[in-house]
Design a protein around this nucleic acid. Structure first.
Length: 830
RNA sequence: GCGAAAGUGGCGGAACUGGUAGACGCGCGAGACUUAGGAUCUCGUGGGCGCUGCCCGUGGGGGUUCGAGUCCCCCCUUUCGCACCA
């Protein structure tokens, strides 16, 4: 056959053919036998998508492809790789979209899932389609509810009141993320605060373990740091400030009658060393002791301020850039260090949710307190000096760093580092302080006053309180309701469906009502990985034997956007299930790696910018193999990269050249590879192996390109020994093409069914000759090829025989020689 | 504000523990084959110069070193995460 008549690479045909073969042969399917008896189980997990109406986005594809390449590589290495996929289809996102387009979510979501499935099948990942999950399937959320009940039994699910954002125009609760500059994201109306009774998971009970385990789990550093940040451990002390002349309800002094906890106000501080500079106190407007300290003259001002704070939406309340506001209560307390009476104010910059809801204000050494004091003319005292002459100077800016104590008898002259402990002990001795740790983490509110989620499986009975739905009655099926739009009541639309929520109490039989809130989507995704291996089972949430074999997840690859919430919640759920004896491990993911963000032509992809890449078009034009390879080639996977349409030409050309090199199989000689190519082949196998293991896909591809270029150099025809091993190397990236070429090379079995990954010989991977760099005074003057292992004297002799070297050395004395074997010779002359 | 990462050709990006800066690819230039090319193949491609060779060059400024993209100090810029957390 002449070259012109040879078959050209037709990705559409190759991909269709192999996808069908894999499907027919069940290459990626896990049967019961395979699940139970896999010898080298490797659970390769990727973050399941939310099936939007727009379809699979190239960002999803980027994430999945990287994870699939890693999984395929493990498989070629001989692991039994279980790689499932599913759909995270509940949630406000879907519901809002459904409301907008006027299609019921129960119709919309299955259509979206069908579309996603079609797209996911086209990308050539080795998904096991027999073990998918769909969080909106009653067969799935039955077990989500079951987990809720397990946590309820363990006392980890509790109902309590909490403030939420309320949009008076949309008449619905909105999440913090949906409040933009104090206004509802949908209608622009100012959002208010409402206090509703809601279900919480007490994740704070696990805060120490959630933090401690971060020191040993194998996760991307940035993700670990994000979680540490979110958990926000602060070490410091609780300090007690006795209330001066407390006032009773009637506004009269009641000093003799008050209970001990109404006697004093406790503040949390990380800087007990600055307590001598606390010139006033600030309480959160909601603080329970406000009533106790407020004087009759100030009462109306205080009430007005509290009302204002209560009405403000939660997001604006926490804006850091707004001017400080506050009101004097008329009350005073005693600074435990100085013994001085200091005024008590209330201000919304102090949050009830953190610490004790009260602070000692040290305007000299805290910028927020400084701002407040300046605004309201409160005294500012310097208690930390940076230099000795600082002590007497007025404070013009809060100094938050360390220094030497001043104006703090008897601690003057002590360094702040020592003073923290010394002052805490000193006050503790008088029962005015105790060392304390506070966390930023709050309990997880899982109630959603919406429709599109799993109903919380609780029945509220007037006599018995909240009663769990008996396990045998799960799932509590989300009913189809025509009007699922939220209303002004502030409760779920399910609260309008009387025939659904009216049920007898399971405990006493009296008329009772179902909980009408649904649970947070994050609960659905907090345990989905446990479900995958048992997805075919309807009798258990997760089979113990399968769980033991496949979990914890061996590799989890996903986006940083879930670094905090999803990953933290799933860790918590796993820990809770572990403590209940339901799973034998407490961390769900053995290894987690984040992938980077894909941008387009230097800018973030977004619908409004109109630069969103639709994977379908690119796959139709270039094929999944080229697309996959390009996605991995465009930049370092863990950092993300810039998608440029023209960039596809690189991998396209590479795969075409590979095809053209391998396909004329009958022409490929049986001669061994030449020594140079043999060395390069082994070096390439090593590099590709190491790079894939470390998710450095871009450089792995570059190495393969380089090798193929070397094989084809000068337009020569490759022989079989030179090219055959390259096929499995590209298989993780371009699985369809690799299978096709492997078969054409005469292999009867699929690469992935009879897994093969080439090994390298370290000896053969190294070159015999090296190019020694010769420097004079650190500047490169020449490069000399020498046999590997040449000694210094020989190298020096060779260097001094080179005119480019002698030119700089002659007439000077060599004072020093730097010798890096096989690499560099540096002659230092002077 | 706090925390983290990053700044390298026209562009995306390489560079192991300090040791040949710019691998690989896009683009561009020249040539080949073509009726044609936005196909394919070959060669070239950081800038400058008195062009066998030399000088400059990894955001800016200093420093350590025989030698710095890499380490240290200061500054600038960008991106991301957290943000009145006491």
């Amino acid at each position: 056959m002449s070259p012109q008549e040879r078959e050209t690479y037709d990705p559409a045909a190759v991909e269709a053919r192999w996808q069908e073969i894999w499907e027919q042969r069940g290459t990626n399917r896990f049967t019961d036998d395979r699940l139970h008896n896999a010898e080298r189980p490797f659970f390769n997990l990727m973050m399941f998508p939310y099936p939007s109406a727009e379809g699979l986005h190239v960002g999803n594809m980027y994430a999945f492809t990287g994870a699939d390449i890693y999984g395929r590589w493990r498989r070629l290495m001989g692991d039994d790789v279980f790689e499932p996929i599913g759909f995270d289809a509940f949630g406000i996102h879907s519901e809002n979209f459904a409301l907008r387009v006027g299609t019921h979510p129960m119709e919309l979501i299955p259509a979206n899932i069908a579309n996603f499935t079609r797209q996911l099948r086209s990308i050539g990942a080795m998904y096991d389609w027999n073990h998918t999950v769909d969080t909106t399937d009653p067969g799935y959320y039955r077990w989500t509810q079951w987990i809720f009940l397990k946590l309820f039994d363990a006392g980890l699910a509790v109902k309590k009141k909490a403030p939420v954002n309320w949009c008076p125009s949309c008449k619905t609760v909105v999440a913090n993320e949906q409040v933009i500059a104090g206004a509802c994201e949908r209608c622009g109306t100012a959002v208010e605060q409402r206090v509703l009774s809601q279900w919480f998971f007490t994740i704070t009970k696990y805060v120490e373990r959630l933090l401690a385990n971060l020191s040993w789990i194998d996760w991307s550093d940035t993700t670990v740091r994000a979680q540490e940040n979110w958990i926000g451990r602060s070490e410091g002390a609780d300090l007690h400030f006795p209330i001066a002349r407390p006032l009773g309800e009637d506004g009269q002094h009641e000093s003799a009658r008050v209970q001990p906890d109404r006697h004093r106000i406790t503040v949390f501080t990380t800087r007990p060393d600055t307590v001598f500079g606390a010139t006033f106190m600030v309480l959160a407007p909601e603080h329970p002791l406000v009533d106790v300290v407020t004087s009759p003259e100030q009462r109306s001002a205080v009430e007005a301020y509290r009302a204002g704070a209560a009405a403000m939406d939660l997001v604006s309340r926490r804006k850091t850039d707004k001017t400080k506001t506050g009101v004097f209560t008329g009350g005073h307390c005693i600074n435990p260090a100085t013994g001085h009476e200091i005024p008590i104010w209330i201000a919304d910059y102090v949050l009830m949710e953190y610490g004790t809801g009260a602070i000692m204000a040290v305007p000299g050494h805290d910028s927020r307190d400084f701002e407040f004091a300046t605004q309201f003319g409160l005294p500012i005292v310097r208690v930390v000096a940076q230099t000795p002459d600082d002590a007497g100077r007025p404070v013009t800016e809060a100094w938050e760093g360390s220094g030497t104590l001043v104006n703090s008898p008897p601690f003057d002259g002590m360094h702040t580092d020592q003073a923290v402990g010394a002052i805490t002990e000193w006050l503790a001795g008088r029962e005015l302080a105790e060392a304390r740790v506070h966390y930023r983490l709050y309990d997880w509110c899982i109630s959603r006053q919406r429709y599109w989620g799993p109903p919380i499986p609780i029945i509220e009975c007037d006599a018995c309180g909240p009663v769990p739905v008996p396990e045998s009655e799960l799932p509590v099926v989300l009913p189809w309701i025509e009007n699922y739009r939220p209303d002004e009541s502030g409760v779920s639309p399910l609260a309008r469906v009387e025939e659904w929520y009216r049920v007898p109490c399971p405990r006493c039989g009296a008329p009772a009502r179902r909980e009408t809130d649904v649970s947070d989507t994050f609960l659905d995704s907090a345990w989905y990985f446990l479900r995958y291996p048992s997805a075919h089972r309807d009798d258990v949430a997760f089979d113990p034997a399968l769980t033991r074999r496949w979990l914890p997840v061996a590799m989890y690859i996903g986006g940083e956007e879930h670094a905090v919430l999803h990953l933290l919640y799933s860790r918590f759920i796993t820990m809770a299930l572990h403590d209940l004896g339901l799973v034998p491990f407490e961390e769900p993911y053995r290894t987690f790696r984040k992938h980077g963000l894909l941008i387009k032509d230097g800018a973030k992809m977004s619908k409004s910018r109109g630069n969103v890449v639709i994977p379908d078009e690119a796959i139709a034009r270039w094929g999944a193999d080229t697309f996959r390879t390009y996605l991995m080639f465009l930049g370092p996977y863990q950092e993300g990269g810039d998608f440029r349409d023209q960039g596809l030409l690189g991998p396209w050309g590479f795969l075409n050249r590979l095809w053209e090199t391998v396909v004329p199989a009958e022409d490929l000689g049986s001669a061994p590879a030449g020594p140079e190519l043999d060395q390069k082949l082994h070096a390439t196998i090593r590099k590709v192996t190491e790079d894939i293991a470390a998710l450095r896909f871009n450089t792995a591809i570059a190495a393969m390109m380089e090798y193929l270029n070397a094989v084809r150099e000068g337009g020569r025809t490759a022989n079989r020994a030179e090219i055959e091993q390259l096929v499995p190397l590209v298989a993780p990236f371009a699985p369809h093409l690799a299978e096709e070429l492997w078969q054409r090379l005469g292999h009867e079995r699929s690469l992935f069914e009879a897994p093969y990954w080439p090994t390298f010989d370290p000896e053969r991977a190294t070159t015999d000759t090296v190019e020694l760099v010769v420097q004079v005074n650190g500047k490169v003057r020449t490069r000399i090829p020498l046999p590997r292992g040449t000694d210094q004297d020989t190298a020096r002799e060779a260097a001094l025989a080179d005119a480019n070297v002698t030119r700089f050395v002659d007439g000077a004395t060599i004072r020093k020689v730097i010798w890096v074997p096989d690499r560099l010779l540096n002659l230092v002359v002077g």
